[in-house]
Amino acid sequence: MLKINEAIKEDLALATDIVRFDHVTKRYPGKVALRDATFTLPRGKVIGLIGPNGSGKSTVLKLMAGLLRASGGTVAINGKPATRRIGGEVAYLSELDALYSSFTIEETIRLHQGLYEDFNQEKAHEMLAFMQLNPGDRVKNLSKGNRGRLKIVLALSRRAALILMDEPLSGLDPIVRESIIKGMISFIDLETQTVIMTTHEVAEIEPVLDLVVAIRDGQVLKVEEIDNIRGELNMSLVEWMKQTLA
């Protein structure tokens, strides 16, 4: 009887958890980027991954995106192991400018349309209008802010179950950041999607988050609900962050 219950629990967990890290370690020659990380993340939430520079946030995200492979332990996305080809179910917004600069915005959208089955071209054009981007512009001629906006459009035009964003707001001015945040809220579908983002703009992003994961020096310290932080612990996210990451 106990065994059946465990199996059902396991199934339920798989059904509700979009991400599962099981004793994940990531080693590079001469450095350990992530140490024995074990946690699960639920679906349908906006999750913030916060921590100082070099703490391993990008590593965690890239492990989820299949761009890195764990040295030890397993990474499961949607119940499946994260391989390089998990890109069919995971949208990844890189911190780097990983766009093909000679393409126009329209050409970039058509490229994504052709590669991803879950790409919604109408939504993409809707978002372009929202962000006030001109499809005929060439990527290399876009301002930094507009490139940031385009990256969000590409990520959110996909119906992927998991959307990963690595520093989507970094280096952008407040107006652009606001439009990206509003764009995110407008176009995300939390009934079918989960968003995980790393960011330094903790105070700005707090109202948008459901859950926060604190990481420092390659170790995942805590996974906490925003409501608990304010409700029970009575502090803002910034204060909690200072306390947890001290």
Binding site: A65, G66, L67, R84, R85, I86, G87, G88, E89, V90, A91, Y92, S94, L96, D97, A98, L99, Y100, S101, L115, Y116, E117
Partner: peptide, 14 residues
């Protein structure tokens, strides 16, 4: 050097 994250984050095989 420039686009590896985009190029490889796809479901198509190598």
């Amino acid at each position: 050097e420039h686009t590896s994250h985009s190029w490889l984050n796809t479901p198509q095989p190598g």
